[in-house]
Design a binder for these strands. Structure first.
Length: 172
DNA sequence: GACAGATGAAGGA
DNA sequence: TCCTTCATCTGTC
């Protein structure tokens, strides 16, 4: 496994997201804690060597820029490397498929299942979406249920609706 | 090995 | 048209 894990705050208009980094890339992204005070910006959880810290700062800039772009309803220009070690091939296939979606572009769980060559694994796709550690950047909010129904969202439907509204996506 | 899940489709009222 | 039920597949415990 990868360690240590570095946590860095990403301040946006929507609140402060917490990005988690390992030695190989971004491992996770936490939604802002609603109605909580904004934590002070500091590196915590690890003690990276100097070259590592510089690299993580670069990744963090990319994460911040990508997050702000997506929250603004625009496509992210660059992404940090994602660290999906420990995740299953199936989950990675689902998330890679989601990364191909641009702003305002949506797919159904069934379409994602079909795209990865497992057209009947629709429920499993839902499970992979729920296991997505990097919401927003890996746009699981762009996955709708059949007939444009909103479905569910691990970070809370409120976020899903907000993100989709930003991108001008209509849903039921 | 059993169970649960962010689905989808079909059938009945 | 809406609701209920069931089939299907994968991940997790």
């Amino acid at each position: 496994m990868n360690s240590p894990l570095i946590k860095l705050p990403v301040t946006t208009r929507e609140g402060v997201f917490i990005a988690h980094y390992s030695e190989t890339g971004l491992t996770g992204l936490d939604f802002p804690k609603l109605s909580k005070r904004i934590p002070s910006a500091r590196i915590s959880g690890g003690n990276p060597s100097k070259p590592m810290a510089g690299q993580i700062r670069r990744w963090h800039r990319a994460t911040t820029a990508a997050l702000k772009s997506i929250l603004g309803g625009r496509a992210a220009k660059t992404f940090p490397p994602f660290d999906w070690s420990g995740k299953t091939k199936f989950q990675q296939a689902v998330w890679n498929e989601m990364l191909k979606l641009g702003p305002g572009e949506t797919r159904s769980y069934g379409e994602i299942a079909e795209a990865i060559g497992k057209p009947k694994a629709v429920r499993a796709v839902g499970g992979a979406c729920g296991a997505n550690p990097i919401p927003v950047l890996v746009p699981c909010h762009r996955i709708l249920a059949a007939n444009q129904k909103i479905g569910g969202f691990s970070g809370g439907l409120k976020w899903k609706m907000k993100l989709l509204a930003r991108e001008g996506v209509g849903f039921i």
